[in-house]
Design a protein around this nucleic acid. Structure first.
Lengths: 285, 285
DNA sequence: ACTCAAATGCAATTTATGTTGCAAAATATT
DNA sequence: AATATTTTGCAACATAAATTGCATTTGAGT
């Protein structure tokens, strides 16, 4: 039950202290949501027991109950995706499709909270300078890598993929990395053992002077050493069922930004591709 | 100090549990701001002491200190900022990231207009009966196929991929297709020449008695012969720049529905995977 | 495979937080 | 003004949360 409602529904009498307390809560619910009964009591110049009794009077399950209500309100009020939320009707609730549409929509909208265009720009600029672009990742990053690789290739960038590689093979794959190259590493929540690979990779990139970009979920900021640019999107709902749509959109934003920043290179890439295609077609016949 | 900063500034080493915890916090800071150390610990499958120690490691004054930091952030992020926030969004409106977020969101929501859960169910039921599942597609379907293949495999389905294949090689790849199998073909807008491949493939599937599913954009309904189930989502914006988020969500819906319809099989698949993993791990040592 | 160091979980301890009976104070009632 | 009624604060109690020493496990490096 909402606090405001609880107050309005309450039909008994309210004492002066009660009124003071209530007005404090309504005045800044979030503040109270973070306070203890005592702190609130002090602000009202009242003893904590009064606070507890008020909470009970209003029908909450003690002061903790009241706080829970405030938490609830805070979460729904401030979560921007909830603001836009459309209500699912009964039939939809059991439908995987509808649920997914909703949760993915949210995930995408949540990107704004963690990432800004500036960071994408920074990453794109690194790629523009790069002679070769190394894409490294494993497991669920595969679709992302494949997708990004297609984009980059089509626009004339040189991309080198390493998917699901063990340390040894990975080393062989990135041995050619040099000062003018860039590394895009995809790192999602994973067992510790994989971190060794990540940090070795980044250290290597650093040592040869290659720039590094990491695309990741909320797990990204925990990675060491830090990359030059970290593109991490927050808010993974339930691990197993949620896709990587967020990171996918980030990849796409990166690609689009790249096209913006250097239309020349992109067009040239496309033209070359077209020529090649023609050549192949003619050969075939 | 802000939590994110604290993590980035921290120069010591982070354990696996640390990373999980941090990612939980970053994933939904407000939630954690309302939780006790214990509740957070449980979400991470970790003991509460680990939580406390992490808080200290990061430089906070115990877990309460960490919570205070989150409170701070929540208050400054949400309270005074409605104005600032809106202004920022306006400035952002022209950025690639924002454009993408908007258009992808729309694309996903548009799925509802073309597809219903019934059709997904129909497709899922076909897959449930199938002994082997053939995934065929080319070009931009690659990420989708990779993703779906991972899902299916993890849940114990047998998936066979054909990516970017010429007619001849494709034929070799699907030669084993039989009556109890299913074919998922990905077909997006493409030059006419590719249709030959599609219709040959479908005719073959029909002739051997395999069930067929097509995942496609608005182009799907034009394909002949008709598959048993057609999952087509409308609204592709600009051919070149648009992603396949729509179809991706459809793939996911298919996977989730599959899990719903046959939890037993899915669980069994996961368990087997887990066993295999253990086996491998033990072998390694 | 063995050793050592680090990380983790457990359990005991300490500290904070919330609750409640009771008496004093305030307010209302006659 | 005396009394009944309510509200409040105090203090003791109960409960939940956080911290810490210690034993076990885990993992890295020979």
């Amino acid at each position: 039950m909402k606090f405001r409602q609880a107050v309005e529904n309450f039909r008994g009498k309210l004492t002066g202290s009660d009124r003071v307390l209530i007005s404090l809560v309504l005045g800044d619910p979030l503040k109270v949501a973070f306070q203890s009964a005592n702190e609130l009591a002090n602000r009202a110049d009242v003893h904590s027991s009064t606070v507890v009794r008020l909470a009970n009077k209003l029908g909450f399950d003690g002061f903790p109950g009241l706080k829970r209500a405030l938490h609830q309100e805070a979460r729904t009020a401030f979560d921007p995706s909830d603001r836009i939320r459309r209500r699912l009707n009964k039939a939809d609730e059991s439908s995987s499709l509808s649920m997914l549409i909703q949760s993915e929509t949210r995930a995408i909208e949540a990107i704004r909270e963690t990432l800004s265009q500036q960071e994408i720009d920074a990453a794109a600029n690194i790629l523009l300078q790069a002679k070769q672009i190394y894409l490294v990742g494993r497991g669920s990053a595969a679709p992302l890598i494949i997708h990004l690789e297609r984009r980059l290739r089509r626009w004339g960038f040189q991309a080198i993929i390493s998917l699901n590689m063990q340390k040894r093979d990975l080393a062989a794959n990135v041995i050619g990395m040099g000062e003018q190259d860039a590394l895009i590493s995809f790192a999602f929540q994973a067992p510790t053992s994989l971190h060794a690979g990540y940090s070795a990779l980044l250290k290597h990139a650093n040592s040869v002077g290659a720039k590094s970009i990491v695309i990741s979920d909320s797990f990204g900021p925990t990675l060491r050493p830090n990359p030059d640019v970290l593109l991490s999107v927050g808010r993974h709902d339930e691990a197993e069922l949620s896709m990587r749509t967020g990171p996918l959109v980030v990849c796409e934003a990166l690609a689009v930004t790249l096209a913006h920043l250097s239309p020349a290179r992109v067009v040239k890439g496309s033209e070359t591709l077209e020529k090649l295609r023609c050549a192949f077609r003619n050969n075939e016949t």
